[in-house]
């Protein structure tokens, strides 16, 4: 084996751990946002306006984050959560300002995505609870987008 091939092989051995860690290390909140927007896509056809602004970050397995959002009675909202991490299990739920579950029963969780639906009974602040239920990654990027009609 010549020296060049030897060096190449040694170099590729060094790269293996990086390749194995790729989803966790090289993923980003932007990737997570792409998944969240993908989940939102079918709802646009139903007349939902999806906001450009979004929340995002990273969480460990079993961790939760709450985001506060002003919702208006008369509108109908969907919140879509996405992550780029394969085999991660995520969830999103909506509570009113008293801490009472406020979502409709048609929310769902599937693969990279989760979604929650709310038709606010009153105008005011609501809490959207984002959770990484399980994940193979140490930190899991997440992004939450919402739409209304």
């Amino acid at each position: 084996m010549n020296a060049f091939v030897n060096a190449l092989l040694r170099g590729s051995f060094l790269l293996w751990p990086l390749i194995a860690l790729q989803p966790a290390v090289f993923g980003s909140v932007d990737d997570a946002q792409s998944f969240a927007l993908q989940a939102a896509e079918p709802y646009v056809k139903q007349g939902f306006q999806v906001r450009e602004d979004y929340w995002g970050g990273d969480l460990g397995s079993g961790e939760k984050k709450a985001v506060r959002q002003q919702l208006f009675k008369g509108n109908e909202y969907w919140f879509w959560l996405g992550t780029e991490v394969d085999r991660a299990k995520v969830s999103v739920h909506i509570y009113d300002s008293d801490g009472k579950l406020a979502e409709e029963p048609d929310g769902w969780e599937k693969g990279h995505f989760a979604a929650a639906h709310v038709i606010p009974k009153t105008t005011g602040s609501y809490f959207i609870i984002v959770s990484i239920e399980e994940s193979p990654a140490e930190r899991t990027h997440w992004a939450l987008v919402y739409g209304f009609r």
């Binding site: 906001r51 602004d53 929340w55 709450a66 985001v67 959002q69 009675k73 509108n75 809490f127």
Partner: peptide
Amino acid sequence: APQHIDIKQLSKTVEDVVVPLPNEIFGA
């Protein structure tokens, strides 16, 4: 999801609000 949560316990983990667009209010 639990039917009820303690909002006070959330205070340290709450993210900033996303400000609604005017058309969100106009729609309502």
